[in-house]
Design a protein around this nucleic acid. Structure first.
Lengths: 241, 241
DNA sequence: GTGCAAACTTGCACTTAGTGTAAGTATGTG
DNA sequence: CACATACTTACACTAAGTGCAAGTTTGCAC
């Protein structure tokens, strides 16, 4: 989670190289952090949302309550770090796409990269465990929002600073909304089912949602048929995977 | 805010009529509620975000701390009730649109209705006072999310239950994202400026954002010129206001 | 390795959010 | 007027989140 970095004590690695020497300290910190996060996830699994406290997580992770708060600003943030990992992965994929590709294509490709079991499993689990809890749902909204902001930045640097801010904001927001919609609908239909068949459905939903967006949400009667043909810049992509 | 209704004690008015006799009780409750909300807004104005407590609000509204929590589940919710009023207004407009109109057109029309000073003033103020506070920003996200859910319902009942859920979710989410984008960009550009000129800018942003959406976010080089021509179902609407 | 400074952890004390409960006060009804 | 119901309030309690100061670990120089 990028926003929690401000709560960590280390500023930057002392060596000018980027990741040559992770240094004992950083390794320890990373270990502690992930141990807290997975303790939180375990408790979410076993006790259900709302039925455990920060103290429980800290005890289960073998640290003090105070240390928990040195790593995460709230209980929800600890759980949201799972979603953040998922989205960081997506953003990485997005930024790796060739600059000449359209934003929608890049977004679609990036989202595709998430429909594999390894990436989507923790996210799907969070989704399922989170559904009925207000606090947790909020954190998830925040994670999506954070992701939107990142896309805006990435798209701006790709398209040049001259591009309309409204275009950037509306596009990034819509892309995220469509990704969110695909996951939500998938989850409603399939629950936490991570089989190949189920993931194929998710993948198709992601494709369809982007197709709808690229097609300007042509009226529903022919929504799916026109979605592909009406969007020359997003050529269906269905056959690419 | 619709979701706070579960925290209120009254279930339904005793008389079968809808709003004939608001009854002393309901009047008192409404008065208390709005007095709490405006006390919260006053404190936000005078002290800035994060620099006042629920106890302060309760004292300022002349009720006990406990009563505050009988009306609102959190400090943020009290402030968010302002945004909720704004969005309820928009949803009302949306639902009043003729059924044969496209969803995008209806959404655009509904959003237009909000660009008048009376509606937008409290929202803009919240926006400005809220910008740098995490908790408050979360509540606002929640309000948008709530609004999205309402649009999904409204669109489903308009388009019939046979319509694809993915279509509904993606469309509603994108519409809201575009509305949010228009407001965000407007606010970045103009700050809390509610002059006629500034509102015209907001209006134009709302139109443009919906145009972009209807046009499938045609590549930026010709984003604005093609946005209108590429969306036959959303005929610019610029000349309607 | 010895020593020292910086980073990290922890316990403690404190404020505030939020909730359950039971007793009090207002409101509507016969 | 009497009575039931809705609403407010005080009180007590759990838990979130933060500041601070003392302890412990790590990195680095000698």
């Amino acid at each position: 989670m990028t926003q929690t970095s401000s709560h960590e004590a280390t500023a930057e690695s002392p060596n000018t190289a980027e990741q040559s020497t992770p240094s004992r300290r950083e390794l320890n910190k990373a270990a502690t952090r992930s141990s807290i996060a997975s303790a939180a996830l375990d408790l979410l699994r076993s006790n259900g949302p709302g039925n455990f406290t920060v103290e429980d997580i800290a005890a289960s992770a073998g640290v003090s309550r105070r240390t928990f708060f040195n790593y995460f600003p709230s209980l929800e943030a600890a759980l949201a770090s799972v979603a953040d990992g998922f989205m960081d992965h997506a953003l990485e994929q997005f930024r790796l796409r060739p600059a000449e590709e359209s934003i929608l294509e890049s977004a679609q490709a990036a989202l595709m990269a998430l429909a594999d079991p390894m990436s989507v499993a923790p996210m799907a689990e969070l989704f399922s465990l989170t559904q009925d809890n207000r606090q947790l749902a909020r954190s998830e909204l925040e994670a999506w929002e954070h992701c939107t902001a990142q896309i805006i930045d990435a798209a701006r640097s790709r398209l040049g600073a001259g591009i309309s801010e409204l275009y950037l904001h509306a596009l990034a927001g819509s892309v995220i909304s469509c990704g969110k919609a695909a996951m939500t609908v998938w989850f409603i239909e399939r629950g936490p089912d991570l089989s190949q068949e189920s993931l194929a459905v998710l993948r198709q939903h992601l494709i369809d949602a982007m197709g709808l967006l690229g097609g300007g949400f042509a009226p529903p009667s022919n929504a799916f048929s026109t979605a592909a043909s009406a969007s020359p810049s997003v050529p269906t992509t269905k056959d690419r995977f």
